[in-house]
């Protein structure tokens, strides 16, 4: 048996259902509060992404985590109804705080419901817990870091916005890997072999340092972060403030010249 710790990126539906029955998991629903109140996966607590983003400093995140009854040992599964992107951003934030046992539900809540699985409108009583802060700067890229790192050999910068956005403007040197590429028809991430082949074709493999970014708050690129993790790529970072910040800092950008490609997109 391999001694290597298996990094779990997603949790499959059946495992989550049995963990819920065993009460061995904390489930986080990151949809809006009104949607959560209507119905959600039984025992799930609600942390709307917007709420987290209003202040995602480690101290605040620690408070939120404590209030959701999560300590360093709690197994956490996050889900959304936005193809896994919002859940990824929340999961990454927990990882950054130093929480190691966090994964994404393999599917969306919409799909969960269409499969006819259990749902609930009960808001659970939560016992507060104490989580430590053990920041993991190695999974975060700031604009300054990115600016110097992207010049280095072996660093791959990945833009996860749609292709048209990329053609129109992107960070120099970035390659385009639209978030839509990452999912399969019923899962938020492709099966491992499939994902590996796709990334391998694009030269995203081995020990390279890989930095993902998207439009504004690191959701689409958060999903890409987990896509990289799902195939065991060890050195992924999220540029969490993404292209919005990059532009506001007036850093250099690049575009595809000499073609009216946008005219190909039917309105």
């Amino acid at each position: 048996m391999s001694q290597e710790k298996v990094v779990k990126t997603t949790t499959d539906i059946d495992s989550l259902r049995s963990e819920i029955r065993d009460k061995s998991v904390r489930v986080i629903d990151v949809r809006r509060e009104e949607d959560y109140k209507k119905d959600h996966i039984p025992t799930a607590v609600n942390l709307p992404l917007a709420n987290l983003l209003s202040d995602d400093s480690p101290e605040r995140v620690q408070k939120l985590v404590n209030s959701m009854g999560i300590d360093d040992e709690t197994s956490v599964v996050v889900y959304d109804d936005t193809f896994g992107a919002l859940a990824s951003r929340v999961a990454w934030t927990l990882e950054y705080l130093g929480h190691s046992d966090v994964s994404l539900l393999e599917t969306t809540y919409g799909n969960w419901k269409s499969l006819g699985l259990e749902k609930d409108d009960v808001i659970p009583e939560i016992q507060k817990k104490e989580h430590s802060i053990n920041l993991r700067p190695e999974i975060l890229a700031t604009s300054d870091y990115l600016e110097s790192a992207k010049e280095k050999k072996g660093v791959i910068l990945v833009d996860n916005r749609e292709r048209l956005n990329y053609l129109e403007q992107h960070i120099p040197g970035a390659i385009s890997l639209p978030y839509r590429t990452l999912a399969s028809s019923d899962k938020i991430l492709r099966p491992k072999e499939d994902m590996k082949r796709l990334l391998d074709n694009r030269g995203i493999s081995g020990d390279s340092e890989i930095i993902t970014y998207c439009g504004s708050v690191g959701t689409l690129s958060g999903l890409a972060y987990y896509a990289l993790k799902s195939v065991g790529l060890p050195n992924a970072k999220l540029y969490v403030r993404s292209f919005k910040e990059w532009k506001s800092l007036s850093k250099p950008t690049e575009k595809q010249e000499d073609a009216n490609y946008w005219d190909l997109s039917a309105e």
């Binding site: 749609e162 292709r163 048209l164 053609l167 390659i175 385009s176 639209p178 839509r180 590429t181 796709l198 074709n201 694009r202 030269g203 490609y261 190909l264 997109s265 039917a266």
Partner: peptide
Amino acid sequence: EQFSIGSAHFSTRENIQLHWVVLEDVS
């Protein structure tokens, strides 16, 4: 949606074309 620009194009010779595909994604 995954590999092109979110649209496709019907040609005059009964082909459908996907534009702006990264060469490495063609396969």
